[in-house]
Design a protein around this nucleic acid. Structure first.
Length: 196
DNA sequence: CTCTCGATGCGCT
DNA sequence: GCGCATCGAGAGA
């Protein structure tokens, strides 16, 4: 499988979000490949998006979103969880796509070890769950997904446009527009999607 | 199965 | 101090 290059990420965030569905997320851990198919994402479209961390402007926490596309933006939330985004759009413009759910493809035994009390669908059907399964935490924030050796994306399975579902994002606050915008995308019928 | 609620730490006002 | 792009235990049905 071929690694996704910088130009893939350096495009309109809604386009990238839809095309991320079906691609493979690869985490290299102690020489082992942990691989999951991306089945659910959410787009965060910049400073004007009131649900985005970038709505508050440039801060230390969200700095990765302002950097070049094709890097990881990983944040710590609710005092105990991490969530993984990929940075999109042009350098200097703070946009990203949150990876919300994966379908495990390889390294599943290690994922089980990383989540000792959960199995099956519960392994990776949520944004913080997939980070536990793939051993992704704040130390990987800002990782380069093109030249790095710990985290990257590879071309996966082609998804037909008719198989892509869209709806409002989960768990966000903000104004009316942020709450209603259909910027959550998922693969129709995939059992690992966090919410039907 | 669904629903409620506590956990837990840090960035931001 | 407040609130958070969440999760999972426990209760009830």
């Amino acid at each position: 499988m071929e690694r996704l290059k910088r130009p893939f990420y350096e495009r309109d965030t809604l386009v990238v979000a839809r095309e991320l569905l079906g691609q493979n997320l690869v985490r290299c851990l102690n020489g082992q490949r942990l691989v999951g198919r991306i089945v659910e994402v959410e787009a965060y479209l910049g400073p004007g998006d009131k649900a985005s961390h970038a709505a508050a402007g440039h801060t230390e926490r969200n700095a990765a979103m302002y950097g070049p596309p094709g890097h990881a933006y990983i944040y710590f939330i609710y005092g105990m969880h991490y969530c993984l985004n990929v940075v999109t759009d042009r350098p200097g413009f703070p946009a990203a796509v949150l990876l919300r759910a994966l379908e495990p493809l390889a390294g599943i035994e290690q994922m089980q070890l990383n989540r000792p009390r959960r199995a099956g669908l519960e392994l990776t059907n949520g944004p913080a769950k997939l980070c536990y399964a793939l051993a992704i935490d704040g130390t990987l924030n800002g990782s380069d997904l093109i030249d790095g050796s710990v985290l990257w994306l590879e071309t996966g399975m082609a998804i037909q446009g008719s198989q892509i579902m869209a709806g409002p994002r989960v768990g966000v606050r903000g104004d009316e527009r942020a709450l209603n915008a259909p910027w959550r995308f998922w693969i129709a019928g995939n059992p690992y999607v966090s919410k039907a």
